[in-house]
Amino acid sequence: MLSEQSAVTVRATLPAVGAALGTITERFYAGLFEAHPELLRDLFNRGNQAAGTQRQALAGSVAAFATHLLDHPEQRPDAMLQRIAHKHASLGVTPEQYAIVHQHLFAAIAEVLGDAVTPEVAAAWDEVYWLMANALIAVEKRLYEERGGHAWRHWEVVERVTETADVATFRLRPVDGGPVRDFLPGQYVSVRVALADGARQIRQYSLSGAPAPALRQISVKRVHDDGEPDGEVSNHLHARVRVGDVLELSEPHGDLVLDAGPDTPLLLASAGIGVTPMVAMLAHLADSGHRAPVTVVHGDRSPADHALRTDHETYTAKLPDSALHLWYEQDAPTGTRTGLVDLAHVPVASGTRAYLCGPLPFMRSVRAQLIARGVAPADIHYEVFGPDLWLAGEAR
């Protein structure tokens, strides 16, 4: 927890620091990448940097962490720390990199806030930073130990399946022929690819199933980028990767995993490519003989855009007490609904635990509807593809 003196200073300066965090993070990343261009080339997502979403997420996480320290000094925000740590571990972030971040972040704070950064203010926010950094380092250390460290492993594409016009599934096996670690339904892997300009960019993709014990399966949606870096990896995978090609994958990570006994009612809600972790969860539930009600909700642009639709339907049908509710914005067939997901007429069992994945507006809407239906906020879990802008919004 924060020392008493630092807590007083942080509370007094949080409004000013919070209001300037957008500018601070912009200056921070500019200085960081000028001094360490290899971090932008080979570690940070260039698409998120170009769009500004990484800056928003960083500002949100710092503000949320500081606020939590002040409001709940006896607790750590473990859910937020776990989410960030899993992402860092999938990228191979090291403890030494936190010192680099500290150097450039505090240089940006001094540049933006000027004389307002007295020695007392600097010391207080330094304490906030290292409380957060050391907590993350500890969680990441445990994750690395559980997985035998971080190493990029080579995987050969053994099958490629066109799911929709913009989604392809890749099934891969390890080139070294060694054992494949089990994953928890809902987890993702990082995929690193070498691009034409020499960069080795990394993206995370949910494991969309386990087609065989020795294989990995990811389903990738092509991002239409119009030449911008946002979709450079997904477009590379769609345009260039075929059966026989080799990709670099991390071990599985991610904290959005099923945590429910066989008698816990579940609701799995997705939209668009957010279907991928839900299909993996459904496959696991079907294999494990889940007995309680499972309500499956999905929204998409059209049936033709609904990736893994057959798996979605097949696994749901294998469960003894399940229901599939589908919404399509256009071309909705009989038995489905037209428009956006609306839970008004969807039964929600008492004690339901919910898992959400999809665009942020979709998840905000579904979460609000579930809370209105009596689902406890603590029982609603979500996954964000990319920087966690939900957190950034909550911090404002």
Rank of each mutant, 00 (worst) to 15 (best):
M1N: 13
T9W: 01
A16Q: 13
V17K: 00
G18M: 01
E26A: 15
F28P: 01
E34S: 06
A35Y: 06
H36V: 06
D42W: 08
L43I: 11
F44W: 10
G52P: 12
G60V: 08
A63V: 14
A66E: 01
T67A: 10
E74Y: 08
P77E: 11
M80N: 13
L81K: 07
K87E: 05
H88E: 12
L105N: 09
D115I: 14
T118R: 04
P119G: 14
A123P: 08
E127F: 02
V128H: 04
M132H: 07
E140K: 05
A151E: 10
W152I: 07
W152F: 02
R153L: 15
E159W: 01
T164Y: 00
V167Y: 01
L172N: 05
R173W: 00
P174T: 15
D176M: 14
G177C: 02
P185M: 02
Q187A: 06
V189S: 04
V191N: 04
R192G: 05
A194Q: 14
S206C: 14
V223I: 12
D225A: 10
G227M: 04
P229Y: 02
E232W: 09
V241A: 09
V246K: 11
L247T: 12
L249C: 00
H253N: 09
L256I: 13
T264F: 10
A271H: 00
A271S: 08
T276V: 12
M278N: 04
L282E: 03
D287S: 12
R291K: 15
P293A: 12
P293C: 10
G299A: 01
S302W: 09
S302K: 12
P303S: 03
A307I: 09
E313H: 10
T314R: 09
Y315D: 09
Y315E: 11
T334C: 00
R337W: 08
L340G: 01
D342I: 12
L343M: 04
V346F: 10
V348Y: 08
R353M: 05
L356D: 00
C357D: 08
C357S: 15
M363R: 00
A368C: 10
I371Q: 15
R373Q: 15
G374K: 07
V384E: 05
P387E: 03
D388N: 13
L389P: 01
